[in-house]
């Protein structure tokens, strides 16, 4: 394996782990805000890691730029969406879960 492939593999594996844990978190966490946390943070990171990993195995510059662009869009759009969801939920009166209290 060439070095760039090794880097790619590592990044991809990292992305996989984070992505999976994020998904698992969304599945298991007790309330909306916790789940939001899991999804918003881990997902963005995992996706960007994977895309970045792919950059290393791409010989073509144009494609590399495109990959970066996708990663960039994700970095802008995903948090925006997460923010908007949070705000909507908050405005709607959804309260965070607390141990032993809340709904």
């Amino acid at each position: 394996m060439h070095w760039n492939e090794v880097v790619c593999t590592v990044l991809l594996a990292l992305g996989c782990v984070i992505s999976f844990s994020g998904s698992y978190g969304v599945l298991k966490f007790p309330d909306f805000y916790a789940r939001l946390h899991a999804a918003g943070k881990t997902d963005s990171l995992a996706q960007v890691l994977i895309l970045l990993g792919l950059v290393f195995v791409t010989p073509d510059v144009l494609t590399q730029v495109k990959l970066m662009m996708v990663a960039f869009i994700l970095l802008i759009v995903a948090p925006t969406a997460t923010f908007a969801i949070t705000k909507a939920a908050h405005l709607d009166g959804l309260r965070p879960w607390t141990r032993g209290g809340g709904q």
């Binding site: 995903a78 997460t82 909507a88 709607d92």
Partner: peptide, 13 residues
């Protein structure tokens, strides 16, 4: 909101 959140996450995936 859970639904939206989850679908959004599927979208990114």
């Amino acid at each position: 909101y859970d639904t939206i959140l989850a679908t959004n996450a599927i979208g990114t995936k």
